[in-house]
């Protein structure tokens, strides 16, 4: 009750001694990882989760959790976690990547794993550009958005429209796949999606893939109100939140909004 023993409310699966973490102020990654940590806590699976992170800003999560963590080559998180899952089927494997790792260099692995129906969970943070290298244009950059390599805004005539990665994965994924998109603007919904994705893996139904709309105030050069405006209004115009594909039998145990 308001005394000096008050401590921060962090998920149990977080490593407290590595906090404050390495992400920039206002970054979306820790919010996604907070939802993921809460989902792991609620399912009580901390002792058998393997967490794989990609290269890019997502690698800064290598000491984020009190979980077995492996940092892989760029875009190769999905196959590494696939290998671990095949060798030790009792483990729960989470491949964590950014949109650069998942939708450009690692897209073949993501799509192939979805097509094979690997029983792993892939979590992708979409912040519409390559943040760690200074904010270059990514497949997910919105039309008209200014980045380092599109200083006059992305022109769909020459560079195309944002990649609909969720549709790509869900169209090749098999019957038991779970594909959904959440946003850091709605952490409760994002947490319920992550929980369902992990349950999908635990019940060995098939591949599960969650895309989370994330924020990058550093490279967007936005203040807090512009950051929320971008995440809540501009990004959903191209990236609709919701469940794109659910397993045929349904899941039932988890409520829709947390």
């Amino acid at each position: 009750m308001g005394n000096s023993s008050v401590q921060p409310v962090m998920p149990r699966s977080w490593r407290v001694d590595t906090k404050p973490h390495k992400f920039c102020p206002g970054c979306g990654h820790p919010l996604i990882l907070k939802c993921l940590g809460q989902a792991i806590d609620e399912l009580g699976i901390q002792d058998r989760v393997v967490f794989g992170c990609d290269i890019g800003c997502s690698l800064l999560s290598w000491d984020f959790f009190d979980l077995d963590t492996v940092q892989t080559h760029h875009g190769r998180t999905t196959p590494v976690m696939t290998g671990i899952k095949r060798a030790r089927p009792g483990l729960i494997c989470i491949a964590y990547m950014g949109d650069g790792g998942g939708y450009s260099i690692g897209v073949q692995h993501l799509v192939s794993a979805a097509a094979r129906g690997e029983k792993i969970t892939a979590v992708l943070a979409n912040n519409t550009q390559y943040a760690m290298t200074g904010g270059q244009m990514a497949p997910t950059t919105l039309p008209g958005q200014k980045t380092e390599t599109t200083p006059y805004g992305r022109d769909p005539e020459t560079t195309g429209f944002p990649l609909p990665g969720q549709d790509m994965v869900s169209s090749v994924a098999g019957e038991g796949a779970y594909v959904a998109r959440g946003s850091i603007a709605n952490p409760r919904q994002l947490k319920s999606f992550l929980k369902k994705a992990l349950e999908n893996q635990m019940s060995e139904k098939g591949f599960s893939f969650i895309e989370a709309l994330s924020a990058c105030p550093t490279n967007w050069r936005t203040n807090a109100s512009e950051t929320w405006d971008f995440v809540e209004r501009k990004m959903p115009a191209y990236f609709k939140a919701g469940e794109i594909k659910v397993p045929a039998g349904g899941q039932g145990e988890v409520q829709k909004d947390g």
Binding site: P8, K19, P20, C24, G26, N223, A224, W228
Partner: peptide, 14 residues
């Protein structure tokens, strides 16, 4: 907790 706050201001807007 000033040892954790990075001053992003997301809470002010929310």
């Amino acid at each position: 907790f000033p040892g954790l706050c990075k001053g992003c201001g997301l809470c002010i807007e929310k």
